[in-house]
C-alpha cells in the first residue's frame, strides 16, 4: 500500500519537478552563455519569472481552435514521452521495446506545433516549422542508428534493462564500449535541443523566432514549459543509454552535464543553413554511427 502511495505521489510530482528543473536548466543556459560572452547575465531563476509573466498576460491573440490546441499537443506529447524515461532508476512505464515507442512519441510534439502554426498562417512560422521538420528528418536517422547499436549490443530494448546492465561504476557505462555511437548521438542531440549550429527553426534574425512567431501570452508560456521538459527528456535518453542512469540527484547532474556540453558548443558556433545542417547530419554523424553499428555487429 505504501509503495502504491509513493508511486502515485511520484506520478503527480515528477512532471512538476521536471518542469521546474528544466526551467532552471534554461536559466542556467542563459547565465552560462552570458558568462562566456563576458556579461553578468540574468538570475538563474529568470525563466520561472518569464513563465509566471506569460501566464498572467491578458488576451493573447488567438487564430482558432487548432492554434490553441497546437501548444497543448506539443506540451502533452512531451509529457507522455517523459513517462517512458526512467528518472532516478524509476520508470513509470517500462517494458521491452519502450525505446522504440519513445521514438514514435517524440514526433508528436513537432507535429502538434506544425498544426498550431499552420492555423496561425504566418509565413515566418511556416518556414520555421518546415525547417524544424527537415532538421528532424536529419537527426532522427542518426538517433535511430545509435539507438539500434545499443539495442544490438545489449539485446534489450528497455531502458530499465539497459540501466541495470550498466550498474557498477563508471567503468561499466556504455559510453566506453559504444564510444562511436555515443558521439553520433551527442551530435544528434545538438540538433534535438535546437542549439547552435542547429537552431535554424527558431533563428530570431532570419525567421523572427520561427514557429513561435504568432504565439504570445499563455500559448508561449506553454511552449516554454514544453521546451523545459524537452531538454530533460532529450538529455535523459543519452544519460540512460550511455551514462548509466543513477539516483535522482546523480541523474540530473549527468543530464545537466550533457546539456552543458551542448551549451558550450552553442555559445561559440555560428549557424548552419538548413541545407548544410541536413547534409551534415547525413554525412559525418551518420557515418560515425554506422561505423559504430558495424563494429558492434562484428565484435559482439
Amino acid at each position: 500500500m505504501n509503495a502504491v502511495g509513493l508511486n502515485i505521489t511520484w506520478i503527480i510530482f515528477m512532471p512538476i519537478l521536471v518542469i521546474i528543473i528544466g526551467l532552471f536548466y534554461l536559466g542556467a543556459a542563459r547565465k552560462i552563455t552570458a558568462r562566456i560572452q563576458n556579461r553578468y547575465g540574468p538570475p538563474i531563476y529568470q525563466n520561472i519569472i518569464d513563465v509566471i509573466k506569460l501566464f498572467s498576460k491578458k488576451n493573447p491573440t488567438n487564430h482558432g481552435v487548432m492554434f490553441s490546441l497546437g501548444p497543448v499537443m506539443a506540451f502533452s506529447g512531451m509529457l507522455i514521452s517523459l513517462l517512458f524515461i526512467p528518472i532516478g532508476n524509476k520508470a513509470l512505464l517500462s517494458f521491452n521495446g519502450d525505446i522504440i515507442v519513445l521514438l514514435y512519441l517524440l514526433v508528436i510534439a513537432p507535429l502538434g506545433m506544425a498544426l498550431g502554426v499552420g492555423e496561425g498562417g504566418n509565413p515566418m512560422g511556416t518556414i520555421g516549422i518546415a525547417r524544424a521538420l527537415t532538421l528532424m528528418l536529419g537527426y532522427e536517422v542518426v538517433l535511430v542508428i545509435s539507438i539500434i547499436s545499443v539495442i544490438l549490443y545489449t539485446g534489450s530494448a528497455s531502458f530499465m534493462e539497459i540501466i541495470k546492465m550498466q550498474s557498477g561504476g563508471v567503468g561499466h557505462w556504455f559510453i566506453w564500449p559504444l564510444f562511436l555511437s555515443a558521439l553520433a548521438m551527442d551530435m544528434a542531440l545538438q540538433g534535438m535541443l535546437g542549439e547552435k549550429p542547429f537552431d535554424q527553426p527558431v533563428a530570431p534574425h532570419e525567421v523572427a523566432s520561427g514557429p513561435m512567431v504568432e504565439f504570445g501570452g499563455k500559448y508561449l508560456g506553454l511552449l516554454q514549459l514544453y521546451h523545459a521538459i524537452g531538454i530533460v527528456v532529450e538529455t535523459g535518453i543519452f544519460v540512460n543509454l550511455f551514462l548509466g542512469g543513477g539516483t535522482l540527484f546523480w541523474w540530473f547532474v549527468k543530464s545537466f552535464a550533457v546539456f552543458f556540453v551542448a551549451l558550450l558548443i552553442n555559445a561559440v558556433m555560428p549557424r548552419f543553413r538548413i541545407g548544410q545542417a541536413f547534409a551534415f547530419f547525413w554525412t559525418y554523424p551518420a557515418a560515425i554511427g554506422l561505423i559504430g553499428l558495424i563494429l558492434v555487429a562484428i565484435l559482439k
Binding site: Q37, R39, P42, P204, V213
Partner: peptide, 20 residues
C-alpha cells in the same frame, strides 16, 4: 545589450515579434 552594460541582467531581452 552587450557585455559592457548588459541589459539582460534585469530580465530585459529583445523579442522578434509584437505578439511576444
Amino acid at each position: 545589450m552587450t557585455s559592457r552594460y548588459d541589459m539582460e541582467r534585469f530580465g530585459i531581452t529583445p523579442m522578434a515579434t509584437p505578439r511576444q
